[in-house]
Design a protein around this nucleic acid. Structure first.
Lengths: 204, 204
DNA sequence: CACAATACTTACCACTTGGTAAGGTGTCAA
DNA sequence: TTGACACCTTACCAAGTGGTAAGTATTGTG
């Protein structure tokens, strides 16, 4: 396979960018991790920016695939949304680097995003919001309210992920393992709670 | 005031570190923002690492102050916890930089934290966990389960914060303003939902 | 075989990085 | 007046940064 090196460079870049951030990693370090020279990397990607872009593109594609996979699994809107969110949770567990990188992108893009106006996670968020608004009881909620719920749920998922190492250091490996094991069930409960109480036009 | 420059350097450092991360900011850039030379900054702090430490220390102190302030406000455990969490939410709104910096620290510390074993947010998390376990219905929950809930709630708060700029770009300024306005109420509902359903020994 | 594209290499460059060395200036106490 | 100290300055440095230029070895492909 000719493009083997390129893929492995992308793997290394994803890991290192996730661990240390865009500015914290030099292209030489990424190339070293693969055992090639810095210029071999530049040959494949042209520049550090473009390499970073390709890393983000791969992640975006993975999310898209996950979305398409989940969309035709359940007919019931509520079950479908739950299934999708739990899929995201599973993917997060399997690929912690990608979650960390997305959070970093959220943080770093604060200034750029205003001028860019577009972002690759937009379809992902739109899809999730649509699924929330398809749930019985949420038809009359505003789009903003649905999106707010989406953010709360994603926040719970992602925050647990990025805090993993810290959490483990604080509570100990054993307790952390227990938390990780219990997390999916708790998340499911959180999803159920959140969806069970649509905003406005309804009182607790 | 003699230490005026030092405090203003810390202010600039906090903002810049939050915006661009530790590696993304040079000490020269921080000094420039204040209008002094790079060596004036080094005179005050010795090294970039120590400056970063002082910035984190200031933030930690602010959290401590917030904790002490909230602890003796409400007698009822549930109200007290709600009050505290909503206080955190307000502080997050008032000081977005500090939230972003904490998230960055969570991400960056992944390797260091394992050897360090200690962290300045530990008392903060322990305090919150204690408050959760004081809520009626949670006395019999395990400490890990309570901490998991804490993380879910903090996740919802912080994720909304760091995603602010991106969210605004995606949904528009007007919709974002509406979401921001509605967020505290939704958060309160989330807290209520989370606390209303203790894990195990109880079924929905 | 010729030839072109791919996948690299070494050599080099201008610039930036965090940090040191040494000195200047003001204030204030002995 | 002297000296110590806080608070800065200019000058400098070795190491590292992203990126360019030019060449080489290998691999198809006509």
């Amino acid at each position: 396979m000719t493009t083997n090196t390129k893929q492995q460079l992308l793997d290394n870049a994803e890991r290192l960018f996730a661990e240390r951030g865009f500015y914290g990693v030099s292209i030489a370090a990424i190339a070293d991790a693969e055992g090639v020279t810095k210029q071999a990397l530049l040959h494949h990607f042209g520049s550090k920016e473009k390499l970073y872009g390709e890393v983000l593109g791969r992640i975006s594609d993975r999310f898209d695939a996950l979305a398409h996979q989940s969309v035709s699994m359940d007919a019931d809107p509520l079950d479908r949304l739950k299934h999708y969110l739990m899929n995201i949770q599973r993917s997060r567990t399997a690929q912690p680097n990608q979650t960390a990188l997305l959070i970093r992108e959220l943080l770093d893009n604060k200034q750029r995003i205003d001028s860019a106006g577009t972002w690759y996670l937009r379809p992902f968020l739109n899809g999730l919001t649509d699924m929330v608004m398809a749930v019985p009881g949420w038809e009359n909620a505003s789009r903003e309210q649905a999106l707010a719920l989406v953010y709360q749920l994603l926040g719970a998922i992602n925050y647990f992920s990025i805090s993993g190492a810290t959490l483990k250091a604080i509570v100990g490996a054993k307790a952390y393992a227990e938390m990780s094991k219990a997390f999916p069930a708790q998340l499911e409960q959180l999803i159920t709670s959140g969806l069970a109480s649509p905003p406005s036009k309804q009182r607790t």
